[in-house]
Design a protein around this nucleic acid. Structure first.
Lengths: 328, 328
DNA sequence: TTGAAAGCGCTAACAG
DNA sequence: CTGTTAGCGCTTTCAA
């Protein structure tokens, strides 16, 4: 049996409420959504009738004149990424608290899909939450027909929050150099990722400042499956410390190294980023840099609802675990 | 500077297109969305004008008369749960493929919030995807003003898919008994979860069939943090095998046991459910039962779009890793 | 094949 | 404080 047909039994409208209450529709409307501009008695009466009839406002109809739906679109390169889950959660909670809902749009690391989302959803949402958008800035601007807040990508004219990548790199290099490492290799992420560019730049910077060797390898897709190729490239580079674009790659590297019998951190140290679920109990537990994902999600929503976050750059902290150790 | 203000520069409407093309709005509308009922020349002309003007249909306006928004609401007890992420991904992909988008609603394991979502979003979406809904069936039915497809909870009159819990329990008990275990304890999940009820029933069933002892402990919140209390309860029960409601609890138990110096599977065996990210590399790697989450998400969407899945019960498989072993 | 006009449900002037 | 009326942008009868 198919139960997917439309069961809508001609919903009760504000006209029904108004008629039943014996007032004009505008009065009913005001009584329900703009109290104060109507007498207490009328308001109470209308409310009672609405309640009795089981009236639920049609939000589409409400949205047509106002142009506001109470919906935000969350555009993400990859829903699967555990790190993004924290951001989603924070954004959802903040949106819910503000009476909004989130429309999810996965762009699969693809700029064209990303832009298509911006276009398709524009008339439907009050704003966009752009997580590490991959499209060229010009295209983004051209397709953006709604307010937007951006995570991890400074874009002219758009508010946003970013992780403190420079601080993260400083932490990482400082930690590694302190352990005696003289050759560091960075396992790159997506070329279209702003964070990746920043990571390369600042890592190279801090490495130079400390006078240690630095190499870039990749790019690699930011998924577990990149582990083997990234690990091999890292090993081949002669570096004693591997810094991965994110934890997924790092954990993949760890798994490959363990299978290959390469000791971590005995032979090489490995550092990740994001502190995803699992980073604390992979093998060995992963040293990683992280910034508060839920806070990022909340901040994005805040930017759209008028609550600017205190600081648009989120602190980065280094979580030292067992995947890093003294140089061999 | 605040850029969150509405930048909408009076979007081009179908009236603009019609006027510019020198036809009636109805003709323009047909040309754009109901081709075939209009001459080829007119259609092409209108399309060209629309293109040139950068016309993008206002989906809210489209939705008002039709009542269809192309939005589905995905109502989940807990977005944070890694297992649900797979389902979200599958649902998003299937929805996108069908030209729909997903509105995310986290009910935080709370029936009241869940029902509030159903009410708030009803007029906005074409249907609901209910993931393990926690509310009483009667309330659910009363609040559901739209078609719905349900995951992991058989509900009269509503289509849905469920994991094959009985098969999962059979696998688990068979595996454990084969290893010599005679006393099994189940670490319960949320009391409002249908899956939990099924798990209890079928586990008890299969244990009885094999003539082995069975105990129920809990309930425990389905999160990592329940590990310590669940582990202690399990240890105290005298069971040699602990079967957790889900992997989060199981991994939490594993962590607590490791910290407490209790050998797994030397002293007790541990089984989880869902095979979440991390289950393969926690310590020791977790034996767990799982069913295809992405497929579940796709199936739910299929139920709403008219593509009924071949089989409404998803296969359960047992992934044997190192957290289970011979009885001490 | 095309045009004119009504209406989806609600809000917001504008009067009274 | 309350009622009348005009749209929001689009689709869809109903005529022509």
């Amino acid at each position: 049996m198919d139960h997917t047909g439309d069961p809508r039994p001609r919903a009760v409208t504000i006209y029904d409420v108004a008629r039943e209450a014996g007032v004009a529709t505008s009065t009913a409307s005001r009584a329900l959504s703009n109290p104060g501009r109507v007498s207490d008695r009328t308001r109470a009466h209308v409310a009672a009738v609405a309640e009795r009839l089981g009236y639920v406002p049609n939000r589409i109809a409400q949205a047509l004149p106002s142009g506001r739906t109470g919906l935000f679109a969350l555009v993400i390169p990859d829903i699967t990424n555990p790190h993004h889950v924290g951001l989603i959660r924070g954004a959802e909670a903040a949106a819910a608290a503000a009476g909004h809902s989130l429309v999810l749009a996965d762009s699969q690391e693809d700029a064209a899909i990303e832009l298509a989302h911006l276009r398709r959803l524009a008339s439907f949402v009050d704003g966009f939450l752009l997580v590490s958008p991959r499209s060229p800035a010009a295209e983004l601007a051209a397709h953006l027909a709604r307010p937007a807040a951006v995570f991890n990508r400074p874009l002219a004219g758009l508010p946003g929050v970013v992780a403190d990548v420079d601080a993260a790199s400083a932490h990482i290099v400082g930690h590694l150099v302190g352990l005696g490492h003289r050759r560091i290799a960075y396992l790159r992420g997506p070329v279209t990722s702003w964070a990746d560019g920043e990571r390369r730049r600042t890592l190279a910077d801090h490495a130079a400042r400390h006078g240690v060797g630095f190499a870039e390898l990749g790019p690699f897709a930011p998924v577990l499956g990149s582990g083997p190729s990234a690990a091999e490239a890292g090993l081949g580079s002669g570096a004693t410390a591997l810094v991965a674009f994110n934890d997924l790659i790092a954990i993949g590297v760890l798994q490959h190294l363990e299978r290959s019998g390469v000791s971590v951190p005995g032979r090489v140290s490995v550092v990740g980023a994001d502190d995803v679920f699992g980073a604390s109990f992979c093998h060995p537990p992963l040293t990683t840099v992280t910034s508060p994902a839920e806070a990022a999600g909340r901040a994005l929503v805040g930017l759209l609802t008028g609550t600017a976050p205190e600081d648009p750059v989120l602190p980065s902290t280094l979580v030292v675990r067992e995947s890093t150790g003294p140089t061999p």
